[in-house]
Amino acid sequence: MSQILVENLSKRFRISERSSGPWGSVRGLFSRKYKEIAAVDDLSFSIEPGELVGYIGPNGAGKSTTIKMLSGILTPSSGKCEILGLDPSRQRRQHVANIGAVFGQRTQLWWDLPVEESFQLLRDIYSIPHERYLSNRSSLVEILQLTNYLSTPVRQLSLGWRMRCELAAALLHEPPILFLDEPTIGLDAVSKLALRDHVKQLNRERGVTVLLTTHDMDDIASLCSRIMVIAEGKSIFDGTIEQLRRSVSNNRRLTVDLKKTIDPVEVEGAKIIEWLPHQAVFEYNPDKTSTPELIQKIATVLPILDLKVENPEIEKIIARIYREQTSLSL
């Protein structure tokens, strides 16, 4: 059975519209016009235990609204949401014991207290039995390498270490499900990589189901076996990265470094994207022209110094999907 089940989930907000100008705000005092917008619109998906799912979309697409509904802190306008058999918003108290959450720009640790004390507080809030607490704490401290930071007040931690502590805090009560909302925002490269490794390890070793929202496509590429893309409240893609790539364009790029400057030469089965004095870039469809075939052809006409075959960057693919989606609805 699915761990997370979402069917036709929608959330509509009423936003008051104010007419512009000085009279507009006066009029606003007496009568207000409301506009209804759908932040999440007829969303359906299901997630199995142990999946690591990336949930992406442009700003304002409805990601956070979805996460809030899944956490039970926002009631859906319509549709169904069931997590481990519970309705998050109606059975919130029971439900929140089953989830852990990290929100990148917020902290659930107590700012002025040492990390350890925040952990103890969570132990009491979740009524974690003492032995369980000790074993969870020590395994998280080991995985996240927190030993040296436990007695530091949270306000003195760097963002990277704070996020690792947040992750530990979210998992102390052994929730089977973890929501990560932009956990890598503002992190430096080292911390980002470390955090990703930890999430991967926690997913593998503890079987935690992870739903991750992020704007960092490297997070997605290195962590998630499955991606869901949402734009303007609607789900526009659900599948693997490979499928996502194919759905946009299967084309690859071949970059050729040249020994000497020559004039552009057309090669059959490939399109010239860029021609620089010492470099030429081609785009081709590997289903029509195989890579070795193309290289052979090119080798006969161009003085090759070096070659590089690339998939289009995931970042660019996503940007293209976002753009197409918004231009469609405009």
Binding site: K68, G72, V96, F103, R106
Partner: peptide, 20 residues
């Protein structure tokens, strides 16, 4: 002070993620 900040910003909703 810390509760004022939470109530005003709406971050209070994250305080609701606790079972007590």
């Amino acid at each position: 002070p810390e509760l004022n900040a939470l109530a005003r910003s709406g971050d209070i909703c994250f305080e609701m993620l606790r079972p007590v």
